[in-house]
Simulated assay, not measured.
Amino acid sequence: MFNELIQQPIHSTLPIHSQSATFYAEQGTGDLLILVHGSLCDLRYWRWQISKLHAAAHVVTISLPGYWPNNPSSTAYEFDLQNQIAAIADVIQQKRQSGQKVYVLGHSRGAFVAAQYVLTYGNIDGLILADPAFPIDSPPPALPVLAQAASLMAEGQDESGLRLFINAVSGENTWQQMVGWFKTMVEDNAHTLIAQSRENLPAISTVQLEQLRELPLLLISGALSPTRYQQSVARLLTLLPHANHAIINNASHGMNLANPKAFNRAVLEFIHH
């Protein structure tokens, strides 16, 4: 859970680069591993992956368009699913080398963006989805808490809006127990909740999912993740029975930070199978 995050400051040693207005940090050599964050996060979310997995892969953690360190005033124009899919494509095109395998790992909303990238481009060697919440065959159900949080923030009540959203998504009292560096990241991306509340994500059809049947796929769940994520993974496992499934013990939605050793081990076992 977010209240289980590591009590250390944000890593600041890695330079942040940009490619077609997409910001990213990178470390390591080997096969390419692209890390895609979820709501209210950015490239800093993967601190315990880029600092550990770089020994076995060329790890690139990106900030999707609209998120920090992009200018908040441009979020209304940048925060768009197609822009975010294109951002992944741009970074892969720049970083991919001949003979190199490419893997994309997406978390939460980022898992949806990563899947849409594969459905659009389909030129990778493996896909990893951590706590995806996919709309399949029908538009995603409305999340009243998102609209309520966005409304509070539009009125200038940022902290109240963030507390409402975070606690609803990740568990009661998560906001109150959140460590400093993570709260800073969330606050830096608070403006994106308003844009997110206005987007209409398309459903992924069961026919589209057929495109993933030939692609190596890993689904990762937190053992304590909220029901909506567990139900989504269960549905995907039914539709894509070839997928591998890793459950991260002692962790909820933020499983890569709550139990990074187990999370990283699952990723390494998948990309090195």
Rank of each mutant, 00 (worst) to 15 (best):
G122T: 09
V179N: 00
L236P: 06
S197P: 00
H37C: 10
T206L: 04
M153Q: 13
V207D: 11
H11C: 06
R44F: 07
Y24Q: 02
L209D: 06
R163K: 13
W181E: 08
S74C: 15
E269A: 07
A190L: 03
I136W: 01
V169S: 04
N250V: 04
Q94V: 11
S197D: 06
Y117N: 11
S151W: 00
N189W: 00
P141G: 03
I128M: 08
L217K: 06
A133P: 15
L240D: 07
P132F: 03
R109F: 02
L240N: 04
A262P: 15
N173A: 06
S51K: 02
S205D: 01
L81D: 08
P72K: 01
Q97E: 15
S74L: 15
L217I: 05
A149Q: 15
E199G: 01
S252F: 03
Y229V: 02
I128F: 04
N173E: 04
L105C: 14
I271R: 07
A86T: 10
S170R: 08
A57D: 02
A223W: 09
F165G: 13
Q7A: 14
A130V: 13
A246F: 10
H242W: 09
I124Q: 11
F2A: 09
S12K: 12
V145P: 06
L119G: 06
L217M: 01
M178L: 12
L237V: 11
L218K: 06
T29C: 04
R44Q: 03
L81I: 05
A133E: 14
D42F: 06
E26L: 03
R163C: 05
G171Y: 05
L32E: 13
P135W: 06
R198K: 04
H54S: 13
L105Q: 12
K95M: 14
E4N: 08
D137F: 10
H107W: 09
A25L: 01
A223R: 12
H242C: 07
V91Y: 03
T61K: 07
W68I: 09
L224F: 03
E4Y: 09
Y45V: 11
E172T: 04
S205P: 05
F112E: 10
Q7F: 14
L240E: 05
L35K: 00
L212T: 04
S12H: 14
F182Y: 05
Q93F: 02
W48D: 12
R228K: 08
Q93R: 11
Q116W: 08
P69S: 08
E159N: 12
L53C: 06
N259F: 08
L240F: 00
D42I: 11
G30I: 00
L268S: 12
A246G: 13
N3A: 09
L201W: 07
E4V: 08
N70L: 12
L219D: 05
G254M: 12
Q49T: 01
E214G: 15
A203I: 00
P202S: 14
Q157Y: 13
Q27R: 14
L218W: 12
